[in-house]
Design a protein around this nucleic acid. Structure first.
Length: 294
DNA sequence: TCCGAGAAGT
DNA sequence: GCTGCCACCC
DNA sequence: GGGTGGCAGCACTTCTCGGA
């Protein structure tokens, strides 16, 4: 092996926007588990970012790499596609990854979406620029089974932004942008890899509150995509008092909500709340303000 | 049998 | 994953 | 002083395990 295992993975730095101009490679950021897959003389190993061996939990991805040459090391994201929901299913993936046992026959298929290659047989590719690694990755993935795919990527920042917006409901969390001339260097000080997460403030239907009515802990909102969520974290005093005042004259029935796992007070008449939604493994909904003027 | 703490992922 | 704090360095 | 890096703490989910 040209690379010692387990290997450190590059962690992208948060950024505000997709970087413009030439020299950047943009790929979609998916909702899954970051792993390294290594083909060794003794078989395929998959380890998580914290270097835990999860090969047993994801045998189909390991199998898909069986034909690759020993010494190959890929960096990618394990994902599970949920056909029914039409989106990547982090919970299903996590359920498999955290279990000590191998998945049963009914387990949903996990796919490794590869976005970089650290090593090819007998060659450490990490010092090479991405412009050299990316074509290598593409050809390696072609030789692998269907449970290993290369990530959707473009050089066009506008295209990347369009993907980020359009594919958000499917579980695309954002965009990772890398310099074409950058080597693979974990712990890199300059931000050679940047991640832009899609986050947005939007108007949601405020249908109830949790906690004390006068000073609620959180708001129960219906998002435009149909999902219902409780805002987190617990509201600070000022926001709580303001929300409590806004809902005071329209408090309705108490609801034991098994789905949300919380008891909340419904509003007789919904209000509009501005919320900030972070798309991720779970829709993280942060309360911004209630719109009383609407 | 159930519940809580701990571990692990983001 | 995120945020805040502290140490470090130019 | 400002940017960067490291670290701890938090949020949230799932699974495991041990004790009541």
């Amino acid at each position: 092996m040209a690379v010692r295992l387990p290997v450190d993975l590059v962690r992208p730095k948060p950024a505000e926007g997709v970087p413009e101009g030439p020299g950047w490679h943009h790929s979609v950021k998916l909702d899954g588990w970051r792993v390294a897959l290594a083909v060794t003389e003794d078989g395929v190993r998959i380890h998580s970012r914290s270097k835990r061996d999860v090969t047993r939990q994801f045998p189909e991805a390991a199998d898909a790499a069986r034909e690759l040459g020993a010494g190959t090391v890929l960096d990618g994201e394990l994902v599970v596609w949920n056909e029914r929901l039409g989106r990547f299913d982090f919970e299903a993936l996590q359920s498999r990854g955290l279990a000590r046992t191998a998945p049963g026959p009914a387990a949903p298929v996990a796919v490794l979406i590869a976005f970089d290659v650290l090593a090819a047989p007998y060659t450490d590719l990490r010092p090479e620029p991405l412009s050299a690694r990316w074509p290598r990755l593409r050809s390696i993935v072609e030789q692998a089974g269907p449970e290993i795919q290369s990530v959707l990527a473009t050089d066009d920042a506008a295209q990347a932004r369009e993907w980020m917006l359009r594919m958000r409901p499917q579980g695309v969390e954002g965009i990772v942008s890398k310099r074409w001339d950058a080597p693979y260097r974990p712990g890199e000080r300059r931000a050679a890899w940047r991640k832009v997460r899609s986050a947005d403030t939007l108007d949601a239907r405020l249908v109830g509150v949790t906690g004390p009515e006068r000073r609620p802990w959180g708001a129960v909102v219906d998002l435009p995509d149909g999902r219902r969520a409780v805002t987190t974290p617990r509201l600070p005093p000022v926001a709580a008092a303001r929300l409590g005042g806004a809902v005071a004259d329209r408090l309705g029935e108490q609801i034991e909500d098994a789905g949300l796992d919380v008891t909340w007070r419904a509003l007789t008449e919904p209000l509009t709340a501005e919320v900030r939604v972070r798309t991720g493994r779970v829709p993280l909904v942060r309360y911004v303000r209630v719109r009383t003027e609407v």
